Amino acid sequence: MKERALPRARLIALASVGATLTVVAGIAVYGLLRGPDQPSEEPAPAPDATPGPAPVLPVPHESIELRPPAVQGSSDPETFVRHVAEALFTWDTASGFVPNDYTDVLVDVGDPSGAEQPGLVADVAGYLPSHEAWVELRKYETRQWIAIDTIAVPAAWGTALEQAQPGQLAPGTIAYTVDGTRHRDGVWNDDAVAAERPVAFTAFVLCPTDPTDRTSCALLRLSQVDHPLR
């Protein structure tokens, strides 16, 4: 992906409550939310003087996946936001994955400069069950997905652009609000159960401004679920 640098004053969050629009420009200094894995301090075992036969390693099953499906890229913002919404709301506790695995695939399509990545990690965490909740949901084979109804640029985004000072929003930054239905199903006392409820959120993305540029959009930030721009 070709890197598109963001200006120093960056978009952190855009939220709408009633008729009030608040545009927060400038980004705070974030600490790392997840550090690298620490190398093992245990020494490697010394080789035997007379090595035995090489162990027979199991052949991985072709259907086993190491991570959830990647978010499909697109230079079209509406298409890209649709892919983001599907990745954000689709998970399965019986898949063997954990919430961080689903977070990673969304962060992979985040701000290429890295400036908004810590905030995006925190945003995505608000959409996924905690580790403790995940362990409980796994007992009931719970899975989730979204049926999208509409994806549209909210009217408040025009106000945000009018209020923004020069350089506060990178060219190509745009907001899309997604409305849909969140579905969940699972097993309770050997019986299949299901539930659904409406959900809405806003995704802030950065997309190419040149129609001939086929570079994929990048996901900057997410509103809180059910607190979208309108």
Rank of each mutant, 00 (worst) to 15 (best):
M1P: 09
E3D: 04
R4H: 11
L6V: 07
A9R: 13
R10S: 13
L11S: 02
L14Q: 07
V17E: 11
G18T: 04
T20A: 14
L21N: 10
T22V: 08
V24W: 06
V24D: 11
G26Q: 15
G26R: 05
I27Q: 11
A28E: 14
A28D: 06
V29G: 12
L32H: 04
L33D: 15
L33G: 08
L33I: 13
G35P: 05
G35M: 07
D37Q: 08
Q38E: 12
P39S: 02
P39R: 01
E41V: 13
E42N: 03
E42I: 10
E42V: 11
P47K: 00
P47L: 00
D48C: 00
P51F: 00
G52T: 00
A54M: 03
A54P: 06
P55V: 01
S63T: 10
S63D: 07
P68F: 14
P69C: 07
A70W: 07
Q72P: 09
S75N: 09
S75F: 14
P77G: 14
T79D: 10
A87H: 15
A87F: 10
L88R: 01
L88D: 12
L88P: 04
F89W: 15
W91L: 04
T93S: 13
T93N: 09
A94G: 10
A94S: 13
S95Q: 04
V98D: 15
Y102N: 04
T103S: 13
V105W: 03
L106T: 12
V107A: 06
V109W: 09
G110C: 03
G110L: 01
E116S: 13
V121H: 11
A122H: 07
A122K: 03
D123S: 01
A125Q: 14
G126M: 02
S130A: 04
H131V: 10
H131E: 12
E132H: 09
E132V: 13
V135R: 03
V135I: 14
E136K: 07
E136F: 15
R138N: 12
K139C: 14
Q144V: 08
W145R: 11
W145F: 15
W145N: 14
I146Q: 01
I148Y: 05
T150Y: 07
T150D: 05
V153C: 12
P154E: 04
W157Y: 09
G158H: 10
G158M: 01
L161R: 11
L161G: 02
A164V: 00
Q165M: 02
P166H: 05
G167L: 01
G172E: 02
T173I: 07
I174V: 13
T177Y: 09
V178L: 03
G180L: 06
R182M: 06
H183G: 05
D185Y: 00
N189F: 06
D190R: 13
V193H: 08
V193L: 14
V193C: 10
A194W: 07
A195W: 12
E196L: 07
E196Y: 02
V199G: 12
T202M: 05
T202Y: 01
F204C: 03
F204Q: 05
L206M: 13
P208K: 04
P211N: 01
T212P: 02
D213G: 15
D213S: 13
R214K: 10
R214Y: 12
S216R: 02
S216Y: 11
C217M: 06
L219H: 04
R221W: 06
R221Q: 01
R221A: 09
S223D: 01
Q224A: 15
V225W: 05
H227F: 09
P228F: 11
R230H: 06
R230A: 13
